[in-house]
């Protein structure tokens, strides 16, 4: 674990891999160190944003170093089933890249439990990690200028659902009618860190 400064307003905790990030986040999410106002889990790091009037970097670093995350622990914020129509424009390409074929991609996507590791890119855009690495594919070499809302996609070790129409470079494998982001819902993000997801073919 390396702890790096972000001015007087944050600490970036760098960890070996996403599993360690999730384990530390799971440990801190219910009782963040005093003065920490926001936490941003990401692929290899956990950013702790702090209020410099209420704490300082040393105090937060001491608090972070004093917890002992359980290896393999993931935050648990409940379960969700997401119905997907597997008709994405890149489904054939993903089948070829992975060697699984189109049906194999669908079966591998639906047969594992995914966990929302973190959000970013846009409000409600969750990065989900699975337990089976056969679906790891690179981003498209040329991003699309328009990906429709509800598109279900793959990139790197992640799967995700586009919350609104936006540019995007992920490989599209299907779409869902579930709305990942709805301001009239509390919380508005369906796919928040710690949510376990099963994708179901519809």
């Amino acid at each position: 674990m390396r702890v790096l400064p972000c001015a007087d307003v944050g600490l970036l905790v760098e960890l070996a891999d996403l599993d360690e990030v999730l384990a530390l986040y799971a440990e801190l999410v219910d009782a963040p160190p005093r003065g920490v106002v926001d936490m941003v889990p990401a692929a290899r790091t956990l950013l702790l944003r702090l209020d410099p009037h209420r704490t300082d970097a040393h105090e937060v670093e001491r608090a972070v170093r004093s917890v002992s995350p359980r290896p393999g622990a993931r935050p648990d914020a409940g379960h969700l089933e997401v119905p997907v129509t597997y008709d994405g424009e890149d489904l054939a390409e993903v089948g070829r890249l992975t060697g699984l074929g189109e049906r194999g991609v669908v079966e591998t996507h639906t047969s594992q439990e995914w966990t929302v590791a973190f959000c970013g890119f846009a409000p409600g855009f969750g990065y989900l990690v699975g337990t089976d690495d056969r679906l790891h594919v690179p981003r498209r070499t040329t991003p699309r200028t328009k990906v429709p809302a509800g598109a279900v996609a793959l990139a790197g070790e992640f799967t995700g659902v586009y919350p609104r129409e936006s540019p995007g470079g992920w490989q599209l494998i299907g779409h869902t009618t579930v709305q990942p982001w709805d301001l009239d819902r509390d919380p508005p993000a369906l796919l928040q860190p710690g949510i376990r997801v099963r994708f179901v073919e519809s």
Binding site: V9, V40, A43, R49, G120, F121
Partner: peptide, 29 residues
């Protein structure tokens, strides 16, 4: 660099080498 959390005030450096100073509406990561 795998995407990571950003703070307001961060001087982020894209491949051009010319920094961007993030203000209030900066991206989360």
């Amino acid at each position: 660099l795998p995407s990571e959390g950003m703070v307001c005030g961060a001087l982020q450096v894209p491949p051009s080498g010319q920094p961007t100073l993030f203000l209030a509406d900066h991206p989360v990561t």
